[in-house]
Design a protein around this nucleic acid. Structure first.
Lengths: 218, 218
DNA sequence: CGGAGTGATTTA
DNA sequence: TAAATCACTCCG
């Protein structure tokens, strides 16, 4: 058993670190890291450790897995966009991309982008430019941090965040009331989508049974 | 004391189930579930129960805590869509919504939806219908489960999942190669977006200082 | 009832 | 998807 607890220089004297390999199950081979306070209390995650230590120790640069301080790596942007912010930011980018595409830096990439054959065959209308803009913006929103948005206040109230002078949302002016309206519409839209899906499934089923009766089955 | 033992329909006749609430300690309020064989033997866990019953009863779908069979719930079905799947599904929905909007169930909602005034003032081109479709699809993707997608294989390989005959991706035919290509383009698009953002910020700064020098400042 | 060891869910 | 966090099972 690797129950060896080692000292952790990055933490106050007396704290120990331990790494335990999972021996069975779906996650066999992975490991868990634990810390033990001078009094022997066990800690299983950074948030838990952080809550316990409070302001006495700054864990901003502390890497829980390695047990070392990582200067410059002021932790990750845990600040994920909230649901409503995503909607608005997405709108913003889709429009801006379209606005830029024939006269600015985005042009080259977008012009040369193509959808895979398989996707193009989906049919229906809409043009690929719109789709590409949507993809690009959606992807950008999905994981990249937003330049210029670092205010702590942004975490609390989207309305405040949306009124800042940061580039991303400079053009917006959105109230909580508007956000609520938007949420209501969202519920309606979801219902509608479910109905559409149901209709599509039924149509498929009908198609299939028709083919079957026509002797097209394998 | 709640020592009440109740019949358990999911198990053979004569088996009883009992739930005992913990009254103190760190886990106060949590409960332990026990089963009793027709002969009175006590069982404290699913593995223990399983070893005793052997092949006579299939406990694969048996939920030890509730005492009920959970059909289809052969474990983790709450699997969320993966990144690439999100992209493709989003494309799918955006197109499908547009295709439906003038002749199907989605029409009423989409026709009556409006963007908040603040958003409309963002300017640039594009029409609201496209944006609304995009919003609706993005929202639907964000948290609702996808009907018809339950295959275990889907967890492992998006390419397999994308070739199924399920409604959601029926029209798609996407290879790993195509996904890799798409990822490459994504990187390019991201770079491009960053440049665009930078350009926009600079333009804003220039505008502001111009206004300042013209005496328009508050 | 405790808690080590894993599963499940969330985040990046 | 992988990593991190959190929840829960199972057995002492």
């Amino acid at each position: 058993m690797e129950k060896r607890r080692s000292d952790c220089p990055a933490l106050p004297p007396g704290w120990k670190k331990e790494e335990v390999i999972r021996k069975s199950g779906l996650s066999a081979g992975k490991s868990d890291v634990y810390y033990y306070s001078p009094t022997g209390k066990k800690f299983r995650s950074k948030p838990q450790l952080s809550r316990y230590l409070g302001n006495s120790v700054d864990l901003a640069c502390f890497d829980f897995r390695t047990g070392k301080m990582m200067p410059g790596k002021l932790q990750k942007n845990k600040q994920r966009l909230r649901h409503d912010q995503l909607i608005l930011a997405k709108l913003f980018w889709e429009r801006r991309l379209k606005g830029l595409r024939s006269s600015d830096v985005s042009e080259e990439v977008l012009r040369t982008m193509e959808l895979p054959k398989g996707l193009q065959s989906v049919g229906l209308n809409s043009n690929d430019d719109t789709l590409l803009s949507a993809i690009a913006s959606a992807l950008h929103m999905s994981s990249a941090p937003i330049t210029g948005q670092t205010s702590v206040a942004a975490e609390k109230n989207p309305a405040i965040w949306l009124n800042t002078s940061q580039p991303l949302c400079k053009a917006f002016s959105v109230t909580d009331e508007q956000i609520r309206e938007q949420e209501l519409k969202v519920h309606q839209a979801r219902r509608s989508l479910e109905e559409a899906l149901m209709a599509h499934s039924l149509a498929r089923a009908a198609e299939n049974s028709k083919e079957m009766s026509e002797g097209k089955a394998a």
